[in-house]
């Protein structure tokens, strides 16, 4: 009995090592925060479209019956610039449909940005003051949301889209959603 008492620190130590080791081995990144809106509908919004005379873009529009991506971006963000070519290629291949949310950006700057890089987006909503961003729980751009056919958020990726993220996470998930 008395001996068992002296084993307690050892058990504690083993527990602690596992506690600390697991996140490293699992490749945990403390900066990444999953969306609080998983499996919930995209928060309602009604924002002007980037194209002049194109009316407004609304949240209901995202429920297209098939999975789509919603990409939150800005012209002032370097990783956003880097991921555009990849998205364009995927759109050209017909692999994805992407809506854009221009987060806290001058519409003119956004237009110039897309003029130089090309435009992968089906439509772009202008979130000038970032309020829709806050409703979505955006905390860093770029962010990419997978939206299912009913307009619910199924996944969020924070940071630049890379080929491996798209191929290993987004596309399999979209296939699964599409059934």
């Amino acid at each position: 009995m008395r001996r068992l008492f002296f084993l307690l620190p050892l058990l504690g130590a083993l527990f602690l090592i596992g506690w600390l080791g697991y996140p490293i081995l699992a490749g945990h990144n403390p900066q990444v925060l999953p969306s609080a809106l998983l499996d919930k509908p995209v928060p309602a919004f009604d924002l002007p479209s980037l194209e002049e005379g194109d009316g407004s873009v609304t949240s209901t529009e995202l429920a297209t019956g098939a999975p789509v991506l919603l990409n939150v971006f800005a012209s002032w963000c370097a990783p956003c610039r880097a991921e555009i070519p990849l998205m364009r290629r995927l759109v050209d291949d017909g692999a994805i449909t992407v809506y854009g949310l221009a987060y806290k950006d001058e519409p003119k700057a956004t237009r110039d940005f897309l003029k130089t890089l090309g435009n992968p987006y089906k439509r772009i909503a202008v979130d000038r003051n970032g309020r829709v961003g806050i409703d979505l729980g955006v905390y860093g751009v770029p962010e990419t949301y997978v939206i299912d056919g009913q307009g619910r958020i199924r996944y969020r990726h924070v940071g630049e889209l890379t080929r491996s993220v798209v191929e290993e996470q987004l596309i399999p998930l979209m296939r699964e959603i599409a059934g």
């Binding site: 925060l33 999953p34 969306s35 609080a36 806050i134 409703d135 979505l136 729980g137 905390y139």
Partner: peptide
């Protein structure tokens, strides 16, 4: 805020 960002 919790509704949007979670308890984090």
């Amino acid at each position: 805020l919790v509704d949007r960002y979670g308890p984090f």
